[in-house]
Design a protein around this nucleic acid. Structure first.
Lengths: 128, 128
DNA sequence: CTTTACGTTTACGTTAACGTAAACTTTATG
DNA sequence: CATAAAGTTTACGTTAACGTAAACGTAAAG
């Protein structure tokens, strides 16, 4: 029943190389099980990979993505650790909020440039 | 009248090192004028620096930020170039939209983890 | 049976984005 | 006047995130 994936399955699905996936394992971001020598990825390993790639799109380092993934791991029992986790969540949220602002302002800039660009094109129209 | 800035003015303002600023100049992302040997930054150079840093927060490479900055430079006259610029704007917008989605989904994840975390803390309350 | 496709490990190479340090000049200051 | 505080150039060092290649195992297909 439980879905599994080969290394090249995942590579194909996400448009990355197998080298990349092995590298992530080497950095302990992934830990696939094995059939003999061969890696077998569960769907939860696949989710981890998705989280890594999402992190990358937002400019996170692999270590930062590793931290995020760790957050999901249940088992951080003691209260001090929970508080520290809450703290990390707050920090990450602040980064995300800044990024959100940056996206909006960059969008605005793009709109402006686009307008100036289109005006320029209309001034000297293409002979059709 | 026209505001100018020393290299350490800008370094202080943006929390970076002078080495970084010189590096950006070396990569042609900045081109301050000179008083003798000494760099003098106009407010438009300062804006460029802000754009670079905004780019970094969104995970752009310096070359990508350089492209963005180039977009603002008026002087790309010919129509083909304008079309190409419009194309680049579209592409960048797509990246920004994906990033926006990623931010929202990561925010959601953080909220979930935070909730689980707070519940856990309430189950084993701190002796006050 | 050998070629093709997929998997493995090990290891050196590469690029980006600076850090760090040396060696020097020019102003300002106690 | 010495020294501290800014500036300069040149150059080697460092880290992250893979790329690339060698050298090998296994298994299905022609």
């Amino acid at each position: 029943m439980a879905q599994t994936y080969s290394i090249s399955d995942l590579a194909r699905e996400f448009g990355i190389t197998t080298r990349t996936i092995r590298f992530y394992e080497d950095k302990s971001l992934l830990s696939p099980s094995r059939e003999g020598q061969t890696r077998v990825f569960s769907s939860s390993e696949r989710v981890k990979l998705k989280l890594i790639l999402r992190g990358k799109r937002l400019g996170l380092s692999l270590q930062e993505s590793a931290e995020i993934i760790q957050m999901y791991a249940p088992g951080r029992n003691n209260a001090a650790q929970l508080e520290q986790l809450l703290q990390k969540i707050t920090e990450r949220r602040e980064v995300l909020e800044q990024q959100h602002k940056d996206i909006l302002s960059m969008m605005e800039d793009l709109n402006n440039v686009e307008q100036r660009c289109k005006n320029e094109l209309n001034k000297h129209p293409e002979p059709s």
